[in-house]
Design a protein around this nucleic acid. Structure first.
Lengths: 329, 329
DNA sequence: GAGCCGTGAGATAACGTTGTCTCACTTCGG
DNA sequence: CCGAAGTGAGACAACGTTATCTCACGGCTC
């Protein structure tokens, strides 16, 4: 910038003014400065500008579990969209379901002075963030609530959604329903299991017919669980899957075996309509999770103060998968 | 930091030394400083540290087309993994297939002094990056080559992959093959179209049987194209789809109509195995695209100088989709 | 015991900008 | 023609760190 000022024969401050589009600069000078900038290929150093001005870094952080999972990348895309609307860049990081990694990443982002954080928490304690929050860092939790903090969160009504799906199965006469969820360390899985259990209890299904199969993580694990269930003497007549990947694994195995078992599962996704087996899915507005969280975050970043907000998004039931009549072969 | 120094009764520089784990600090002093840091909740400002030290910002930028697309989010996840290995944060941004947005985002990232950039280019001219590259900014292009620059790129062998798929269809006796690709503004689509054409020419399929259907972008567009093709008097007997979303749209429509048309398409993905219709896919190692690009980038960031490298990843053919015998219904 | 060297810590300047203050110059009314 | 008000531009300090230089101190050699 000093070089530019020299070349244009003006003060450094005037270059700064031109770069920042201050309106009170003479047109001739502006032109000279711009010319010098072009000639030298000068690009303002935002790091320094930010340091001096004390303004925001125009950067927010998003910490999710796994970027390659459709669910999270959809949220990331929605957050990016909002963030771009506010001229803010987005640092994305995967915690890979590891508590220590989550804390490491979050604190790193704090040191970089991001303007705010959106977090899908992995660990069971986020109190390490309390000092930052006290010092004014806006934080919004998505998909899972924080532990040890009282801040904004945007969640899905997991319990009601799971309950509705299982009630649907029960209303069709199914009594032996296998419930497969991922690890109960995950909040959403606990909630969905509880919702399923509520439905089973309300229908007075005897406890010995509550089949909880734990805890497939990969689709192939779910396929293995299904294989085990259907090799048993009295297999279930219906299956409820706790998330999209379990659903995919289960469907793959059921189709492989030619089982016509009734299937329901959590998560609706672009591809669900093409599943080779009818499925009742619990859907919700995934982009809305990201959009709401980001908009809430920016309201806080822009200084709005309101008590912590806890959004709970509704779910819907939908029929997906190819109906038998339409299928190839 | 001044406050910390005051509380601990040491100089600011000593606090800096403690924070940076300089080994030459007396243990007692270190303890006093750490205690003060804890008490005040001090967190080093990386922005300022970076400004003064002139070191890297430990941040790289990734500019892709659409974060919510499986293909790109898989790349993003791979890039994140490498980047995390090098203690670097990742700024992700979607250009949404818009030239002006791409340039805006890239230049913003330059101003933020990222250590390097990984770009899936959208526009047909990246020469705006030349000054930055001349000043030492490492840049790697992924999936599509840059225009107007000679820098590293990591691509897939689109042409050979498409050619192999269409040759497969031809070898089975198909002559009327519909080729559906997304907009020819996209490099990969041009290449895949050329590959398909090469195969058709080599097989001496008469030009009037080269059916090129342009240019579905959304799966629903592809479904519409299929509907139109199969409402015509002499529909094709085989279909080649230029990417995963076109494949999904086409399969959905073919299944809806009960057509048993032979289908091949570009992109292999986790869900392809569950498609309700047999499909030959052109696959490749998607994470490798991201991993290779990121590793190349970090070699450059760490100062290695080599002539621009152009990686071309091989493709494979695979059978996906549920075979008819296994299907439900 | 004087000089030398190694070690640990502080003083000061600097990184690349922008905020604040100041000042010269212009314009305009009386 | 003078003074007040307005306008455009420069000087200087500051943002929160770290690099460099300096210095005090203690232990060592000769």
């Amino acid at each position: 910038m000093i070089d530019v000022a020299h070349l244009a024969g003006v003060s450094v401050k005037t270059v700064s003014r031109v770069v920042n589009h201050t309106p009170t600069v003479d047109a001739a000078l502006t032109e000279r400065v711009l010319e010098a900038i072009r000639e030298l290929g000068f690009r303002r150093n935002d790091v320094a500008a930010n340091l001096r001005s004390g303004r925001n870094t125009s950067t927010i952080g998003l910490v999710i579990e796994d970027l390659s999972n459709t669910f999270y990348s959809t949220i990331a895309a929605a957050v990016f969209e909002v963030s771009h609307r506010f001229n803010t860049q987005l640092i994305t990081a995967s915690s890979e379901e590891t508590t220590s990694l989550e804390e490491e990443i979050v604190l790193d982002l704090c040191q970089r002075r991001v303007d705010g954080l959106i977090i899908v928490p992995t660990g069971n304690d986020q109190s390490y963030l309390q000092p930052e929050i006290d010092m004014g860092l806006p934080v919004v939790f998505v998909d899972r609530p924080p532990a040890g903090l009282n801040v904004d969160s945007v969640l899905i009504d997991n319990r009601k959604g799971a309950r509705a799906a299982v009630e649907q199965l029960l209303s069709e006469g199914h009594r032996k329903i296998a419930v497969m969820v991922d690890s109960l360390h995950i909040y959403t899985m606990r909630e969905r299991l509880i919702g399923a259990e509520e439905a089973l209890c309300a229908a007075e299904v005897p406890p010995e017919d509550h089949i909880f199969e734990a805890w497939p993580h990969e689709p192939s694990d779910a396929a293995g669980v299904v294989a085990h269930l259907f090799d048993s003497p009295s297999p279930p007549t219906a299956v409820f899957c706790g998330n999209n990947r379990i659903l995919m694994g289960a469907v793959a195995e059921l189709v492989r075996r030619g089982e016509k078992t009734r299937v329901a599962g959590f998560d609706d996704f672009e591809f669900a309509g093409l599943l080779p087996h009818p499925v009742t899915v619990v859907g919700y507005d995934t982009p809305a999770l990201g959009t709401l969280a980001a908009e809430l975050l920016f309201r806080r970043i822009h200084g709005e103060t309101l008590p912590p907000k806890h959004e709970l998004l509704p779910t819907y039931l939908a029929e997906r998968g190819i109906p038998p009549a339409r299928r190839y072969g």
